[in-house]
Design a protein around this nucleic acid. Sequence first.
RNA 1: GGGCGCGUAGUCUAGUGGUUAUGACGUCACCCUGACACGGUGAAGGUCGCCAGUUCGAAUCUGGCCGCGCCCA
Length: 952
Amino acid sequence: MVRDRGRDPRPDPRRDPADRLPSPRSRARLLRAADHGARRAHRACARRAARARAPREATGLTDVTLAPRFDPKAIEVRWQEAWARSDAFRAPSRAPGARFSMVLPPPNVTGVLTLGHILGGSVMDALARWHRMRGEATLWVPGVDHAGLATYVEVRRRLAKEGVRIEELTREEAIAAVDRWRQDHERRIVEQLRAGGFSLDWSRYRYTMDAGSVRATRTAFVALYHDGLVYRGERMVNWDPVLRTAVSDLEVQNVEEDATLAFVRYPWADGTLGGMEVATVRPETMFGDVAIAVHPDDARYAEALGRFVIVPLAHRRVPVIADAAVDPTFGAGALKITPRHDPIDREIALRHPDLATPVEIFDESARLTGSGVPAEFHGLDRSTARARTLEALEREGFLVRTERYRHSVGRSERSNAVIEPRLSMQWFVRMAPLAAPAIAGVRSGEIRLHPERWTPTFFRWMEGIQDWCISRQVPWGHPIPVSHCRACGQDTVTIDPPTQCAHCGSRDLTPDPDVLDTWMTSWMWPFASLGWPERTEDLAEYYPTSALVTGRDIVFFWVARMMMAGYRFTGRAPFSDVYFTGMLQDEQGHRMSKHLGNSPDPLDLISDRGADALRFAMLFPNPVSEDGPFGTSTLDGARNFLTKVWNLVRFTLPHVPPGAPPPASPELSSSSALENRWILARYRRAAEEFDAALAGFEPTRAATVLHGFVWHDLADRYVEVAKEALAGRRGDPLLRETRSTLLFVVERALRRLHPFAPHVTEELWHALPHDGDLLATSRWTPADEAPADPEAEVAMEAVLETIRLLRNLRAEEQVPSGTTPPAWVRPAGPEIADVLARERATVARLARVASLTLLAASDPAPAGTAGRVAPLGECYLERPADAPTASEALLREREKLTGLLAKERARLTDAGFRSRAPPSVVSEVEEKARDLAERVRRIDDHLKAAGSPPAG
RNA sequence: GGGCGCGUAGUCUAGUGGUUAUGACGUCACCCUGACACGGUGAAGGUCGCCAGUUCGAAUCUGGCCGCGCCCA
């Protein structure tokens, strides 16, 4: 019944409740609609159907028609193709004037785009389109990231499902398998980006493993190597025993987990009774122990220093040593030292060079191996070994007791395996020298972070930065550009893969088997994607880039490192502004993640509600820079808003004369209609704030301003007021002025909305008179082409407020919808009286009253009326004969006002306030108190006149 | 354990010393009004986390406490 309205004869499958799952809200609405009285609805439908059938020649000014309902599917692809056809987003190679450039943070070819990508894309496209429309040469570079480990893990998992272990493939086979996966996902990602309508310059599409990226990566590595900023060394690294590779500190997630803390007795080596009690959560590492350490000031162990204990089960003799790093309050205050398998232990061991050389007890999969491990435990993996060790210790009487213990465990971001600290030979980047210029850049304001509050976090991390482990023991990634010479044992490190040793000329070279961390390529993205290390025209024209938009989760992985790379390799900051988006949550407040499977596929949402709605929903109403929920109600809100805009243009179209020129700057005079002056002033204000918000990286504020302006000022207020003039009942010049004002404001609103909702605005703009082929590339219109007009704003405020008061009275008094009782207003001052006298007809029409009579200050309140007292004056409405008695609203108002009045009076009697507050504030309060007292008095008068006793 | 950030109607949120605390969603009532029910009109809903302090005046500044989140160890 709801859909059977006779306006659109085509069946619309989306309207059929059986075809989709209605949200709880729309379900409620359907039920309500059904409930609402079938007969009434039916009558209305019939009336509408008749209307729709009647030709529109009464207005007949234009033959352009828009579908009665906004249907994104019907328009989005069409405009995407139109933009592509006209190369609208290809950045000019050489152009005069300002530049705006950005790189798209290249999505991982691991999978498909998530809503997080759409969030960032929506912000970036808003910026790109806004700058482009303002005439700046605008470049937005698309690309995808090979995403080293992340992609490798994905493919590894996929192959495992098919029964293939990627570790058993040859290097070439593994790379080929990953690359096939990459190609599939690259296609899908590009398709998603196109469906979003993002204004990327596809002619400059890049991939982090294309030839240019290979060259950039090798060039950078070689430069750092020769500058001594890349080195190879045996260090304690985070070892992922599942993927069997080292990972960087950032790729380790620390999580709180329960463990068993075992108190183990290490007996004295000389056979004396007793021994040292050691607390450990990792008893299985005891086979690698080289010492027991205590704090040097720990009196309990003063005697023990220099003595030896026996490592239980291993039957090895190790010394008791003193080191200040030991926490005497933890456990028994004694720490077993296993230097190959714990970073703190290693540091302690390095301070005690006379200790035995530590033995390695784990293999690359963290299974117990090596000569120090008793046969009983050989080949066991860590967790089995732990349990068996505990059993053995207990059996042999070395286990004193155990405790439950909650502590932080490092897990590999990619495999979730518990990280095994492991001493191994790896490549590192020396970070401190690279970080310094980046810190200085942010400190000096050369690079600005938005929102600003993330700067302290940034500094903290940068200032404590550790060297970066960049080698990975997997096949997928950029090979480390180092070859070892078997003849002379030296390394050859060159940009082009060498054919012979740079030192001895031998051809017996072995390339380093490892690959580079994926961020070793992406940290150069802002300039590598523009052609570096070649001195390309794009690099000259568009580097440094203007803005970088990304999620806060990769501030250290990526943003900080881009700054370092930018300063190091180009001598400049890679971007001037960084905008961090928040993390999306589902409607239950859980962070959206692929892992939880609670992020919907953007393509599904686009095909359901349209790319424009999805994009607008990303920016409004929840602030982009905060973590916040996203769900159907947000999406519905955006869709509803765009439908509103659609209908606003449908309303406008019949008022556009055929052949009318595109709207130009408005020409109004002081004799122009108030509503026209007002809406232009409101537009000016909104447009200024919109521009300021975008310039200040506040996309949500820009969207909010626009939403409020379009919906409330333009559609709800202006259009309703202007209907009178548009009907031609107030004379020709006014009709012309109103039509051109309406057209102007609607068209300009579409322009401002275009960066947020490009497709629908493009469609609507084409339905209106327009210059040029595309809104996307049309010239910008500055806010100040509309006059500021504070007078009109104040005057209109009085009109709107009067209407609101009278409507309020109608509702309070339950005036039946069909009747129009007479009304009276006693304006508070002559200016308001003037305005209301002029706009009397408007007020009467919109408040739905039969007449509006202005009262003088001395006139008594009309009998038989209900009244409201407001700052602008008093309003009275004739009460229905059978209306209920006293006006509760008036009493409530009185109570509120007397409360306020008491507060102001209290301040005025406070001597401190009078003597210390600025005189302007004092007089403001005095005036407010006078005004409040006057309003209370009028309420009392009115209550008296209406026969109710004034409230105490 | 350390650091940073955040606590404002049922939910999300604006608001950096004087506002009758902003808006959206949700709620309630009325309404198919010649663009729009994916709509209109009106209303209700807040001791601005708690406690002290600074100030003539605090949602706003300071300190402490409580709660939540993130990062680091």
